[in-house]
Nucleic acid binder design. Structure first.
Length: 495
RNA sequence: GAGGCUGUAGCUCAGUCGGUAGAGCAACGGACUUUUAAUCCGUAGGUCUUGGGUUCGAGCCCCAACAGCCUCACCA
């Protein structure tokens, strides 16, 4: 046991001797510190009497509970900063004012302990809003020394492994995750308002379809079968549209067995929305509404900061450009001239031999265009051959009715006019499979899904949104790990 | 999977040319009833991530492993 824990355990023992439960009890009717601070105006200050030093004050009686963040002991008087999830307030506790019994408890306090207090809200001589403690209730002992009181925790690894400390001791972290919750709530509210119903699809899939990604593999013992954690929500939601769920969505976790980066975590949160009798145009309008509503619900301005100097302007309508327009603009090559595109690809050291022209074209697009799309911008009308789940344009089967929303070079949303022709779907599954490792293909043959389409899926628009990335953009976070409470880490070494 | 950077006290960080391991905060003891990262006096706290190697001598140089971060690849 280290010296810190030793001294804290000693105080825990003393508390027990004093008849105090060091792990606390129910503490009713306390007010959020943020609300307590808002009662500042109720403080009444009288004129300073002749010969006196301080003006008599009277303030509201308040009750607060929280964690001790700072302690300044001045002998028989101590100042503490108490923090809860709504804010921080100073406490003043005097030996004379609280009495000997409470003072004995106060002498057992350590930084990071949890306490409740009753007292009067007033100001100190220096004007600091302060609860003048009349009653102290010990709530929970902390056995670990907290991070440094000024710098907090800066080590990225510690902050992720010990998120519980990061939330308390790093500025803005708790606020960021609470904002995430507000944004997700807003998305559900917007969708509900538009008549969409939320469902819960299976996360264990026999076939990991609906996207191109390597799945996590697991095994069900009783059925002795291989299962995959879902990589997308798409195919089950579409089955539900066949079943008559005309406006349906799922907002949940998907799992991809891929690399980890500032923009990738093996498990992440995806929203997929399907609207019968809509198309990708209806999804574009919905996407804007979802984002703008979320910004409003979080109490944010439409123009948000991004990094040191940049801002992102979310004022709708977002820019819209076709894939080919952007391709011509950034690659300087006619997007319909396959030879010129191939030549451009070769210059970029992109493999061209034996590869489909649209795959090469898309590699060039990803290399030269995507990073430059600061957006928000809807990129529309993708090459059909790279979109096996998407309906083709009626007047041009080479082009798929698909858009992706890019913001700060990140793909945030992806939407289709959904392909509902079962024969074409089956054919596209088969052609996609050709020459591709199964894991690398977006189209894994799913006979049950084809069978569902044969029963008639209404023409529809579908939308996928990477929720974590959207949260990053709305919270000015450069890493996905800053918006996921417990990102995946290797296990800690045992020492 | 490849490359670069980082790893020193509970936390935040110094550590010169290879020559006895440092500071602040936190802790402990003392003073202090209006402090604000309180202040002042004193005390204690280290397997320098781990394992090898070079050297009379390694926190420092070399090799490897582990972990984190960044870049790239895969991907959203």
């Amino acid at each position: 046991m280290g010296i810190h824990e030793e001294s804290r355990r000693e105080k825990l023992r003393k508390l027990t001797e004093l008849g105090v439960d060091p792990w606390g009890q129910r503490f009713d009717d306390h007010q959020a510190i943020g609300e307590i601070r808002a009662r500042e105006s109720e403080i009444i200050v009288e004129p300073i009497p002749e010969g006196a030093r301080d003006a008599p004050q009277s303030g509201p009686k308040v009750r607060a509970a929280g964690r001790i963040m700072l302690m300044r002991s001045k002998g028989k008087l101590m100042f503490l900063d108490l923090q809860d999830w709504s804010g921080r307030v100073q406490l003043m506790m005097g030996r004379k004012q609280v009495g000997e019994d409470a003072w004995a408890i106060a002498e057992c306090l350590d930084l990071a302990d949890l306490v409740g207090v009753d007292g009067e809200l007033k100001r100190t001589r220096t004007g600091e809003l302060t609860i003048f403690v009349e009653k102290l209730t010990f709530l929970t002992k902390c056995l670990e020394p907290p991070p440094e009181k000024y710098h907090g925790m800066t080590d990225a690894e510690l902050r992720q492994r010990m998120r519980y400390l990061d939330l308390t001791y790093s500025d803005g972290v708790l606020e960021r995750f609470l904002r995430r919750t507000k944004i997700v709530q807003s998305i559900r509210q917007t969708l509900g308002g538009e008549g969409f119903v939320e469902i819960e699809g299976p996360t264990l899939h026999a076939i990991a379809g609906g996207a191109a990604a390597r799945p996590f593999v697991t095994h069900h013992n009783a059925l002795d079968m291989q299962l995959y954690l879902r990589i997308a929500l798409e195919l089950h939601l579409k089955r539900l549209m066949v079943g008559g769920m005309e406006r349906v969505y799922e907002l949940g976790r998907v799992y991809r067995n891929e690399g980890i980066s500032p923009r990738h975590n093996p498990e992440f949160t995806m929203l997929e929305v399907y609207q019968a009798y809509g198309d990708y145009g209806s999804m574009m309008d919905l996407t804007e509404k979802l984002i703008v509503d979320a910004i409003d619900a979080a109490g944010l301005p439409r123009e948000l900061p991004w990094g040191e100097n940049a801002t992102i302007n979310f004022e709708p309508p977002f820019a819209r450009k076709t894939y080919d327009e952007l391709f011509a603009e950034h690659a300087g090559v006619d997007p319909n001239d396959a030879d010129a595109v191939s030549e451009r690809a070769t210059k970029l050291e992109i493999e061209t031999a034996g590869r489909h022209a649209d795959v090469i074209k898309n590699d060039v697009f990803e290399e030269l265009v995507e990073d430059k799309l600061m957006g928000p911008i809807f990129v529309t009308d993708y090459p059909a051959s790279i979109c096996p789940l998407t309906k083709r344009k009626a007047d041009n089967p080479q082009v798929a009715e698909r858009f992706e929303l890019f913001i700060q070079g990140m793909e945030v949303a992806n939407a289709y006019t959904e392909l509902n022709d079962p024969d074409l779907q089956e054919e596209l599954f088969r052609t996609q499979l050709k020459g591709l490792a199964e894991d690398d293909s977006m189209a894994k043959m799913d006979h049950d899904f084809i069978r569902a389409l044969r029963s008639g899926m209404p023409p529809a628009g579908g939308l996928g949104v990477g929720i974590d990335r959207l949260i990053m953009l709305l919270t000015d976070s450069r890493s996905i790990r800053d918006v996921i409470l417990f990102p995946l880490l290797r296990p800690e070494q045992e020492t």
